[in-house]
Design a protein around this nucleic acid. Sequence first.
DNA 1: GTATATTTAAAACACATGTTTGAATTATTG
DNA 2: CAATAATTCAAACATGTGTTTTAAATATAC
Lengths: 215, 215
Amino acid sequence: MNDRVSDDSTKDRILDAAESIFAEKGFKGSSVRAITEKAGVNIAAVNYHFSSKTGLLEAICDRRLIPLNKLRSERIKGILSEAEKSKTTPRTKEVLRAFIEPTMKLKETEPGAKDFIAFIGRAFNDPDGTARDVFLKFMKPMAELLYRALSAALPDMPKELLFWRLQFAMGAFGHTMQGDMTGALKAFGIEADTKVSPLEMLLDFMTAGMESTYK
Amino acid sequence: MNDRVSDDSTKDRILDAAESIFAEKGFKGSSVRAITEKAGVNIAAVNYHFSSKTGLLEAICDRRLIPLNKLRSERIKGILSEAEKSKTTPRTKEVLRAFIEPTMKLKETEPGAKDFIAFIGRAFNDPDGTARDVFLKFMKPMAELLYRALSAALPDMPKELLFWRLQFAMGAFGHTMQGDMTGALKAFGIEADTKVSPLEMLLDFMTAGMESTYK
DNA sequence: GTATATTTAAAACACATGTTTGAATTATTG
DNA sequence: CAATAATTCAAACATGTGTTTTAAATATAC
């Protein structure tokens, strides 16, 4: 019953391969044959270790999303209790940063995670119900905490407006996560000098959007 | 050779059915069998009239995207020449409005178009290369015009920053287009009174994000 | 070291996919 | 009306899909 000997090798190879292929082709677009070939394992291994293709998807989310959301939650809860202690209001940008920064960091540090980030960026709008449902299941508590923290940061904003703006912000975030923009950049004849990181640009954009009083 | 007698009936029935099924299931997730069944036509009709499933996708984009982009282009060009005439700078919000408002209007007026709008909202991030490629082919000149108009509205902004902010804005837009948010709203325990339209909320959000000087 | 459980392997299964075929039907034309 | 073209139809085709099966190989435990 110890699952740390010959188990992982195969399991992890499948997880790594699936992560990368899902990122490129989406859930429906990835065949378990393509995944197992890339992983160098037999096709039956997916159903043996994960019981189904959907089970594999859930395992992928388990491996990355649970630690990621733990990081996010801790940071947001830290901000909330800090604000409560000092009887102030959390800053919108810091709340958003607490949610987004761990994702960007993960993308930079752990190389394989880049594919996963791109994948969830897409899963957010994926036409395929399976991927979206699994993804949303993992994200629900996280989304509620984020919504609560933004409510604290913007206490006077009508809840419906706050909700919509959060949707807009998440749309911007998700779209930024999926794939790299270098191709599009070049198509617009822009040379990237990246003096400012995409993370900071995104946070500026989101914060201004969330706090807007534009008339 | 007159294609206006028995032709259209079948062709249009297929287009309508495909539009709605593509919107729900995405390109890859929609089978031509499901489409032809919904349209009440024989399965071979798709290949007869559109030569392939991809040809059908292109025909759908033809029918909706060309008129829509014509509307958008005319409005943006109007804003640009107006600004040139009065030697002023276009207003960011009006440029964005010229791009987005026609979409929302189309959604409200022509009932079948709602499915198409949802579909392109998704195609923007669709993992399936076919749908994304076809969609981007139709959108490229439009995107360049929009970028040019925003450059005119924000002449002092570094081009790379402008580009990224446009990406963020399009992400917010695309995510808003796909599907309705009523389910998510309810999940957050928010009752929608819709005193302000999503369009205006989105425009406020985008404009603030584009123009942000947040530090 | 043998018995037991776990894991891998090749093949097949059952079904869904986009597309093509060739005959039947319908519409158009002279 | 006859001849020709355009369209519809049921059936089949070729391939791809997730999953299951059964036997062989490997690791674990006594």
